[in-house]
Design a protein around this nucleic acid. Structure first.
Lengths: 212, 212
DNA sequence: ATGAGATTGATTTCACATTCACAAATAATT
DNA sequence: AATTATTTGTGAATGTGAAATCAATCTCAT
């Protein structure tokens, strides 16, 4: 255990490990599993699994493996999903609605949805009423919400980000394909779908040219 | 120019650069731009922009910058989006429908949608009829399609992947949260939403604990 | 009780990605 | 024409993440 600088890819894998463990318990009542099993389940090497976990402590037993329940609890604590986080969603377009209906999130619960389109305001999506974006700042403050998902068009994203951080939001999951310019004390994760797609098309072309 | 091994992050940024250039032309009729301007626009350093581009050739003019049109054309050729690619989508759930309606893709066009749910088959989404997954293999062969998006539940993903690669698919954009086990000659890009979210929650917790 | 096999956790090594720093080239200015 | 401002492209240095290796530890079978 070192507890110094945790690599970002490590952090991203933690929730993947956790999700696998949750499923694993449901499927076969496995009490103990090895880094090899966990690694194969999620598509990484056993070395990497052990490396990732060892940043945070010693959770396994040499010669045996990891106790599933104990590892799950520890991962929960490490990631910070011991209790559910409340999140707001800004943008009730197709992507926003998809996120709302995607009920497999671990650690968060979307509790409010906002949009500026009068055609969308008042509609119900997945039991939540789409509210006017004008009410947003007040509600963030009232409910003391720290986390937000931005799923608005690129042109609006920066403005929305400024508004919500002004009202108290500290972490943003940004689906708009623009880099948000924010203070240091706001955490931002960008989820730009174009990156993955571009990579895919590039590689497909490489593959085809290689054959010719 | 080196033309040896291109870093994967570089490839992922290419389409981001391209998208910015497309927008830039629309907004202000800029003919030339510098690596600094491009970098600031997409949120990376000018050094990195130049490094990325230099893997593929010399597109700029020292002391001046890059001609927008020429750079755009070159990026198009490099990524391989000179002509639109036809893609199939498997899974007409919320995420699938969001992708269908998300009409901002560069370089691809979704031309067929498949699902196994009888309630969804026959429905029209964004002008496309959802077809029975049983017809999938035949249609892939008929239309000679090489690219697919998988947006089905985790349990089905591996099977779907085997089916479609058997029918000729060579590249898969996988939104199911499982690692697909495929031959070497199939390109796979995994888009696991849980990773980003986990990272966000972790960092938010770090931030809060830091303050306390 | 002992030895074989399995597995963790840590150290070392290696590979990859980004930043730094600067020569070369261009345009604008005096 | 000479000088100054920019800006590109790239070799070298730095930083970062993953793989390989191995001692220490545990279980189980004999």
């Amino acid at each position: 255990m070192m507890r110094l600088k945790i690599p970002e890819p490590t952090i991203k894998r933690l929730l993947v490990y956790y999700r696998f463990l949750e499923n694993q318990i449901g499927v076969n009542e496995q009490k103990v599993l090895s880094s090899r099993e966990l690694g194969e389940g999620v598509g990484v090497t056993s070395n990497l699994v052990r490396r990732d976990l060892s940043f945070f402590g010693e959770f396994g037993c040499q010669g045996v493996g990891y106790d599933v329940e104990i590892l799950k609890d520890n991962l929960k604590k490490i990631i910070g999903i011991s209790q559910q986080r409340q999140v707001i969603l800004v943008g009730a377009g197709n992507l926003g609605r998809a996120l709302l209906n995607y009920n497999k999130f671990v650690g968060i619960e979307i509790v409010e949805v906002f949009d500026c389109d009068l055609n969308k305001i008042g509609n119900t999506v997945n039991k939540l009423e789409v509210k006017n974006v004008k009410l947003m700042e007040e509600i963030i403050k009232e409910r003391d919400i720290k986390l937000a998902i931005i799923a608005v068009p690129a042109d609006y994203a920066q403005n929305v980000a400024l508004q919500i951080t002004g009202a108290g939001i500290k972490a943003i999951w940004n689906f708009a394909p623009v880099p948000l310019k924010m203070n240091e004390d706001v955490v931002i994760i960008n989820e730009d779908l174009a990156c993955g797609l571009g990579c895919l098309v590039y590689k497909l072309n490489q593959l085809e040219q290689q054959i010719v």
